[in-house]
Amino acid sequence: MTTFKLIINGKTLKGEITIEAVDAAEAEKIFKQYANDNGIDGEWTYDDATKTDTVTE
């Protein structure tokens, strides 16, 4: 398992969460579901060097 981080730069929700996932694709799926569940819809970027997804509304 690898640690992945999501940075949220939303209009109403800001912060970050960290998860353990098998790979980047699994982490992205989990993060996008989390964002959807919390009403966050924005531009996504991924930095492989830091294993960090960022969503900005």
Rank of each mutant, 00 (worst) to 15 (best):
M1V: 07
T2V: 13
T2M: 12
T2L: 14
T2F: 14
T2R: 13
T3L: 11
T3P: 02
T3D: 05
T3M: 10
T3Y: 10
T3F: 12
F4T: 11
F4V: 12
F4H: 08
F4I: 14
K5P: 12
K5L: 10
K5Y: 12
L6M: 07
L6S: 01
L6F: 15
L6G: 01
I7L: 03
I7S: 02
I7E: 02
I7V: 10
I7R: 02
I8S: 00
I8P: 00
I8Y: 05
I8T: 01
I8A: 00
I8H: 00
N9D: 08
N9T: 05
N9P: 02
N9R: 11
N9A: 07
G10S: 08
G10Q: 03
K11A: 09
K11H: 13
K11F: 12
K11N: 11
K11W: 10
T12D: 10
T12Y: 13
T12V: 11
T12P: 01
T12K: 12
L13P: 02
L13A: 04
L13R: 05
L13I: 14
L13Y: 14
K14D: 05
K14L: 09
G15L: 15
G15C: 15
E16R: 07
E16I: 13
E16A: 06
E16L: 10
E16H: 09
I17D: 00
I17F: 12
I17S: 00
I17M: 06
I17N: 00
T18L: 10
T18D: 01
I19M: 02
I19G: 00
I19A: 01
I19Q: 00
E20N: 07
E20D: 06
E20L: 14
A21W: 14
A21I: 12
A21P: 01
A21Y: 12
A21L: 09
A21V: 10
D23Y: 03
D23G: 03
A24Q: 11
A24K: 13
A24I: 12
A24L: 13
A24M: 10
A25H: 09
A25F: 10
A25N: 08
E26V: 04
E26H: 08
E26K: 01
E26P: 00
E26I: 04
A27T: 00
A27W: 06
A27L: 07
E28D: 08
K29W: 11
I30N: 01
F31Y: 01
F31Q: 00
F31E: 00
K32S: 04
K32H: 09
K32G: 03
K32E: 02
Q33E: 07
Q33C: 14
Q33M: 09
Q33F: 04
Y34R: 01
Y34Q: 01
A35M: 13
A35E: 02
A35F: 10
A35G: 01
A35Y: 06
A35D: 05
N36D: 11
N36S: 12
N36Q: 14
D37H: 05
D37K: 07
D37W: 07
N38V: 12
N38E: 04
N38W: 15
N38S: 07
N38C: 15
N38T: 03
N38Y: 13
N38G: 03
G39F: 10
G39V: 02
G39A: 04
G39S: 06
I40Y: 03
I40M: 02
I40L: 06
I40P: 00
I40A: 02
D41N: 13
D41S: 12
D41F: 14
G42R: 03
G42L: 09
G42F: 11
G42W: 12
E43P: 04
E43S: 09
E43H: 09
E43R: 05
E43L: 09
W44T: 03
W44P: 01
W44G: 02
W44V: 02
W44N: 02
T45C: 14
T45W: 11
T45K: 06
T45M: 04
T45D: 08
Y46F: 11
Y46S: 04
Y46V: 03
Y46A: 02
D47T: 09
D47K: 04
D48W: 12
D48E: 13
D48K: 08
D48T: 10
D48V: 11
A49G: 08
A49C: 14
A49S: 10
A49Y: 09
A49V: 12
A49F: 10
A49K: 10
T50C: 14
T50M: 07
T50E: 04
T50K: 06
T50P: 03
T50H: 07
T50V: 04
K51S: 05
K51V: 03
K51D: 03
K51I: 04
T52R: 10
T52G: 05
T52F: 07
D53H: 15
D53C: 15
D53G: 15
D53T: 15
T54Y: 11
T56I: 07
T56G: 07
T56D: 03
T56E: 06
T56Y: 05
E57M: 07
E57I: 13
E57N: 05
E57V: 12
